[in-house]
Design a protein around this nucleic acid. Structure first.
Length: 284
DNA sequence: CTCCTGAGGA
DNA sequence: TCCTCAGGAG
């Protein structure tokens, strides 16, 4: 395979020619020997790809591997998910984190059924209009579900390109990486190429200090203990177990001061994760 | 642009 | 402590 990589002329770090020529071979050689067998890479359908991509937003592959088959068994297709009650979707989502993603996935399924005749659109421009689908997820869906050549970046891809082409740089912006992704893209087999890139990136993450720390977009996660996120997760779990609870009961159960709890409940309600029911709150 | 959003395993 | 196949609000 011949691969051409051109770096912007004014770019401080120039692409080393030898690395550029060996890049695709290195990635594909690793893939040949270490390709990950993942359920969403078998029996590929737009629905299965969509569900996996939502789950994989900020959640590690190992945990998604446990939840994905259970979720697919419970909600096997767009119609089943769109017709489900949100509380049942949230129940199946427990353990994955970021419950808001479950709401977005559910809303996206309903939109696909009601406004797209049950067919997930195959274009990134259309996909980003669904809630919870941004640039990265749209690109991944186009590449993985439809095997179409599309240029996108997510954390593993970012890691690979920083490692190979920005060796001596910090503060690398995605704008700088994107042209390299486009130049190296295998337009005949984009799905396999992105699988290979991501598997290589996952390998790099385990064997090196994270190259993404040199990304301009790198942000360290705020501590979880004592955070609003922790309380929000507790609220959803409490309502899943008890049905309807008053604000006072929720506050005392979770040991959170009333004013703070009021603010958190207001946020959850605004995001559609909980609903008022008279004097209390419940899952929608 | 900054900040927020869960949970769990290494 | 570190990170996770990001998206969205402001």
């Amino acid at each position: 395979m011949k691969v051409l990589v051109r770096a912007p002329a004014a770019q401080e770090t120039t692409v080393k020619k030898r690395e550029a020529e060996g890049f695709a071979g290195t990635i594909l050689d690793h893939y040949a020997g270490h390709k990950r067998k993942l359920p969403w890479r078998e029996d590929i359908t737009p629905y299965r790809i969509l569900v996996s991509e939502f789950m994989l937003q900020q959640t590690q592959v190992e945990r998604v591997l446990v939840k994905f088959p259970l979720f697919l068994q419970r909600f096997p297709d767009f119609s089943a998910l769109a017709g489900a009650a949100l509380k049942d979707v949230l129940a199946s989502w427990q353990g994955l984190g970021y419950n808001r993603r479950a709401v977005n996935l559910w809303k996206t399924a309903m939109s696909v059924v009601k406004e797209h005749r049950g067919q997930l659109p195959a274009g990134a421009d259309e996909l980003v209009r669904f809630p919870g689908i941004g640039f990265s997820t749209a690109g991944a869906i186009v590449a993985f579900a439809f095997d179409k050549p599309v240029v996108f970046i997510e954390t593993n891809i970012r890691r690979v390109f920083i490692h190979f082409f920005f060796q001596d740089r910090t503060g690398v912006k995605d704008r700088e990486i994107l042209p390299l992704v486009e130049a190296t893209l295998d337009r005949e087999n984009p799905r396999q190429w992105y699988y290979a890139l991501m598997d290589y990136g996952a390998m790099l993450g385990r064997s090196l200090p994270n190259p993404n720390r040199r990304s301009a977009h790198y942000a360290r996660q705020a501590p979880f203990e004592g955070s609003d996120r922790q309380v929000r997760g507790g609220v959803i779990r409490a309502l899943l177990g008890k049905g309807t609870l008053t604000k006072k009961t929720i506050s005392s159960t979770l040991g959170v001061e009333a004013g703070r709890m009021a603010r958190i409940l207001s946020g959850l309600e605004k995001e559609g994760l909980i609903a008022r029911n008279g004097n209390g709150y419940q899952l929608p």
